[in-house]
Amino acid sequence: MTGLTLSHITVRRGPCPVVDDLSLALGPGECVGLIGPNGAGKTTLLRAALGLLPHAGTSSLARLAPARRARIAAWLPQMREIAWPVSVATLVALGRTPHLAAGGPSDADRQAVAAALDRMELSGFAPRIATRLSGGEQARVLIARALAQEAPILLADEPIAGLDPAHQISTMALFADLAREGRLVVTALHDLGLAARYCTRLVMLDRGRLVADGAPKDVLTEANLAHVFGVRAYQADTPDGPVFQPVEVVR
């Protein structure tokens, strides 16, 4: 299985660095939550890591040829775009693009699509027109598309924004499962409660810089929360696992 190594990644927009000299080594089996306030550089970091943005420094993924990289890393952008009224099955099958043989989809491709639909509880949706689904359903279809890619690394940008509570929980649980299967999942998140419960590791960004990196309880400290997010939170270890709830703004 494959990890992701970033060393001294810097991305500038004009003269200002949006991501500033950031180094990280992420390994297989980790479910990494990328957290930080709006504009901290989460999306930029993920896109630079994939090589979709010009950057200084090196990323183990960005160095690969695009076709090879596509088999190693799946990318779920924040912008949920479905341009044409294609069926859900067709859309999810687009995740197989890096694997397709010249002749068209193989049995393995069809199985991967069926498995991805199944994991996102979308099996009954296969013939439906994707653009006619609700926003949350479309988000789940797009996650299924990324799963169908069957890449050892999954990078996702706010994948659970706009999902109902049940699907937020099941999607985060799925990401944790993927990590247990030996994949590396990196997901930008705003829900710190779900991040605390399901991620094995949190990476906290502020204004393009790495502020904290480690186990959730070591990253979500009172000082970090106040300094980076400007909030105070209630935290407790319960029989149901860690509970984390921001309760007030402190600046």
Binding site: P66, R71, P77, E81, G95, L142
Partner: peptide, 17 residues
């Protein structure tokens, strides 16, 4: 063009140049 159904970023990440 099929991959572009998902938008440019996703298509690029799927290996489309």
């Amino acid at each position: 063009l099929d991959a572009l159904t998902l938008g440019e970023d996703a298509a690029a990440a799927l290996g489309v140049r």
